[in-house]
């Protein structure tokens, strides 16, 4: 568990489950305790959903997450505690998201709310020019991300938008660590080139 990634069970009151970590819960699920799986689902829905959205599942993110949890349950006997339960689950989420693209032949990954970014509408007198520029820059960044090849974008999304470490990214994307490193490096270079082009185009 990385710092700042709570695996704890929030706010469920003084139940015995509150103190259990993921591996304890996995052990219970394997012993036939369905409620322990409910607890795992509740605990990891937010990360799973965020991952699906940022990897481009768009409006299907909820279905992807649901499917991933069902598959994870059925594959739980194959889970080895080499990676955290969370990374293992996110790998299933990433895979389901890719399947979605394949089956619906979606080229576009990042159907984010930022995707349709349009020029800023002039606001009131207290509008900082900086805020406007920052918003334009974010829109440009998202635009450039969308132009990246899916594999490159996945690396960027995992490493920066989801803030995963190299090891966890490797698990989630099912890639060797070295590949994560090189792909991230390459993707950043492409992104820079795209952004430079944008600036030149505007200028």
């Amino acid at each position: 568990m990385e710092p700042g990634r709570p695996g704890r069970c929030h706010g469920s009151g003084p139940t015995a489950e509150a103190a259990l970590d993921d591996d304890d819960l996995v052990t219970r699920v394997r012993a036939g305790d369905r409620e322990a799986y409910d607890a795992l689902v509740a605990r990891h829905t937010a990360s799973a959903y965020r991952t699906a959205v940022l990897l481009g599942a768009g409006p299907d993110a909820e279905d992807v997450v649901q499917e991933a949890f069902v598959k994870a349950y059925r594959k739980l006997s194959r889970y080895r505690a080499e990676a955290s339960f969370r990374s293992w689950l996110l790998a299933i989420v990433a895979n389901e998201t890719r399947n979605l693209h394949r089956t619906r032949s979606r080229r576009d990954g990042l159907t984010l709310r930022a995707a349709a970014a349009e020029p800023v509408v002039a606001g009131g007198a207290d509008d900082g020019l900086d805020a406007v520029l920052a918003a334009e820059r974010r829109a440009a960044l998202v635009g450039a991300l969308r132009l990246l090849p899916a594999r490159d974008r996945e690396a960027i999304v995992c490493r920066y938008l989801l803030d995963l470490g190299e090891d966890e990214t490797a698990t989630v994307l099912g890639l060797p660590r070295g590949t994560v490193k090189s792909r991230t490096h390459r993707a950043l270079a492409k992104l820079r080139a795209l952004l430079d082009r944008e600036v030149a185009h505007r200028g």
């Binding site: 709310r113 930022a114 995707a115 349709a116 970014a117 349009e118 020029p119 800023v120 509408v121 002039a122 606001g123 009131g124 007198a125 207290d126 509008d127 805020a131 406007v132 918003a135 974010r138 829109a139 998202v142």
Partner: peptide, 11 residues
């Protein structure tokens, strides 16, 4: 009040 409106997007 009076913040720039970003069309649906970068909220």
């Amino acid at each position: 009040p009076g913040r720039a409106a970003l069309a649906d997007a970068v909220t």
